[in-house]
Design a protein around this nucleic acid. Structure first.
Lengths: 209, 209
DNA sequence: CCTACCGATCGGTAGG
DNA sequence: CCTACCGATCGGTAGG
């Protein structure tokens, strides 16, 4: 109530309702797309969720597909940054170490951007937007497979399983996180990252003891 | 052109076109649902795929949702059989051994019934049929988590990661198979099952040597 | 003329 | 198994 703002009279700031911006609408859309699926979500559903009319949404967004594209780009940008960094050769840092790093940082991204990553992992290629996302995803998969192959060549990983298969399984396990992780649940991100790296690299079975 | 067939006049055998039965229509439907997603697939798409008209499909099937239900039941029946067998206590067969067995047999089911299992893993709960499937899936998850907990209690599995989390990760890795496995690809089911059990139980890192 | 919206309705297509 | 349709709802846009 006290005047922390400017001393201006505060009238005619905005004319209409609350005033959503595109990021807020995107967040709501991603949430709905995840709960019901992209195709099963209508722009009317989204409008109702926001307490707006459908036309009002189109003031902030050009199409339903644009919302999907923005979500997929968010996930892909984050994952690309992680994978690019891990793929970068550095003096004294082996492929094995960088692989462990990319697993840990991927978990962080999946947790911090779970809604958009979940959408990414469910893309089927039904439109130009989805096909473009699949292409970027393929690039990530290729980089990760190359990193695994490097770690095998380095002698750090077992060589009795094809590197490409190892990569599928490792990141299959990592990606499964979006299906069950709940931010308010029993596990915090660090614990999950520890569990995944432990299970993946050292295995479930008790070796010593 | 020459009469290799029977000598019968060949008339009025069937009236209409080729003559599909429900299983054939179901197979085509599952395939389309997987390629485009359930919601993005119209009954018209399915009709075109089969070379039928839309009403012709409703001669064999009561609804689009019934097709989904039949697919989900197929996957759930198979997985339930595997999990039930693995959960059965047997003299001289420890939980660890039964866990390895359920992983191996799950891989076999995922490969043999990949299309329907893929649908199952993508269910969101948008209808009664989907909610019922999610309930059966939850039952499977609970059984598997209990088996993992048993194996930990038995002293066969590491106890520094919560059993429930171990279960998520292990079957997250197994289930990821539906996203990348191709029957005509480089890996046969036995090889994949071996790779998964090796990676999951013994880990990726080279322990000896 | 701008912004942030509204009530109403467009042309097409969904499952049945 | 087809032609001919239905009630409803889709994504998107008109004027104001």
């Amino acid at each position: 109530m006290s005047t922390t703002e400017q001393a201006e009279p505060a009238p005619r700031r905005r004319r209409g309702r609350p005033g959503y911006d595109q990021p807020a609408i995107l967040r709501a859309a991603i949430d709905l797309f995840n709960r019901r699926g992209y195709d099963a979500t209508s722009m009317g559903d989204l409008a109702k969720e926001l307490g707006l009319t459908k036309p009002a949404i189109y003031h902030h967004v050009t199409s339903k597909e644009q919302l999907l594209g923005l979500a997929l780009d968010d996930a892909l940008d984050e994952l690309t940054a992680v994978v690019t960094e891990a793929s970068r050769e550095r003096a004294g840092v082996g492929a094995y170490e960088r692989l462990r790093e990319v697993v840990r940082r991927s978990v962080e991204v999946l947790v911090a951007h779970q809604p958009s990553v979940t959408l990414l992992l469910r893309v089927r290629g039904n439109s130009e937007v989805e096909l473009a996302a699949l292409e970027r995803r393929r690039w990530l998969d290729d980089r990760l497979a190359a990193l695994v192959a490097e770690a095998v060549a380095e002698g750090a990983l077992r060589d009795n399983v094809p590197p490409a298969l190892v990569s599928r399984l490792l990141f299959g396990m990592v990606n499964s996180l979006v299906e069950w992780y709940r931010p308010d649940g029993a596990y915090d991100p660090v614990m999950v990252a520890d569990a995944i790296t432990t299970v993946a690299f050292d295995g479930l079975a008790k070796h010593e003891a």
